[in-house]
């Protein structure tokens, strides 16, 4: 089987978000980069499916030249090759992102054949648009199930589970299909050193699509008024226990 998985490079913000002076981006000079945990799990799922069923997995990103790092990360845990749609760093809106991904899939279809499964995160870590996977499915005329927490291939069908309150809803769809996943569907492995070495030699096909005018146009970012607090220090070490239990009683949480 052939699986395509889509990831987006995002900064790893720590305890506080700082913006650039023009307020259009997060200040990333001192930050590392990653992808959403949902997408990490999508990558792991793709690798496991190919380990079980044989075939090929491909990772795709639309992002700046530096996003090669996230493609290599995915290949380090076992994805076979990568597609890089290189941007100038300016974010694309979700409609344009989906259109560019669809175009890349059409190119793949012309040379390498069809994919059986397209995996996405349920939502990107930063923008959280909740739609790129669904848009790609519509353009390809494929069924799409979102928010998936368990996935099993049964012949030419997929059996999927999605949380609904405390219970889980079941879905069954024929392949090919689009699935957007949530963290928790699996526990991603850490890349091994040989895995990282191999990833350096795996191929990346890049192209440079043109960014259309956004229809959901970002104007600026705002750090929400944090209810920044001055924590009351109840004490140091185990001697603080009586004061803590007094507080629990005050708050009415002691049964």
């Amino acid at each position: 089987m052939r699986v395509l998985v889509c990831v987006k490079r995002v900064p790893m913000t720590g305890g506080r978000i700082v913006l650039t002076p023009d307020q259009r981006e997060i200040e990333t000079r001192h930050l590392g980069f990653t992808v959403s945990p949902h997408e990490e799990c999508a990558v792991e799922e793709a690798v496991r499916l190919i380990e079980t069923h044989g075939g090929e997995s491909v990772v795709l990103t639309l992002g700046p030249p530096q996003a090669e790092e996230q493609l290599r990360d995915a290949m380090a845990i076992g994805v076979d090759r990568a597609i890089h749609l290189v941007t100038d760093g300016e974010e694309w809106d979700p409609q344009a992102t989906a259109a560019a991904i669809v175009e890349a899939i059409e190119v793949e279809r012309r040379v390498g054949g069809d994919f059986d499964l397209y995996l996405f995160g349920n939502e990107s870590a930063d923008a959280g648009n909740y739609q790129v996977g669904i848009r790609v499915a519509y353009s390809l005329g494929l069924p799409v199930v979102t928010g998936v927490k368990a996935l099993a291939v049964e012949g030419d069908r997929l059996r999927l589970e999605r949380e609904a309150g405390a219970a889980r809803d079941l879905y069954e769809v024929p392949l090919p299909a689009v699935v957007t996943v949530l963290e928790g569907i699996n526990l991603p492995r850490y890349p091994s050193v040989p895995g990282r070495m191999r990833a350096q030699r795996k191929p990346i096909a890049s192209s440079t699509p043109v960014r259309p005018t956004p229809r959901l146009e970002k104007v600026r970012l705002v750090v929400p008024e944090s209810q920044r607090k001055e924590a009351e220090i109840l004490g140091h070490g185990p001697q603080a226990a009586p004061r803590v239990v007094e507080l629990l009683a005050e708050l009415g949480v002691l049964p």
């Binding site: 978000i17 997060i26 930063d126 923008a127 956004p214 229809r215 959901l216 146009e217 970002k218 104007v219 600026r220 970012l221 705002v222 750090v223 929400p224």
Partner: peptide, 8 residues
């Protein structure tokens, strides 16, 4: 984080 945006 919040984003101010225009929806065309």
């Amino acid at each position: 984080l919040l984003e101010e945006a225009l929806l065309h």
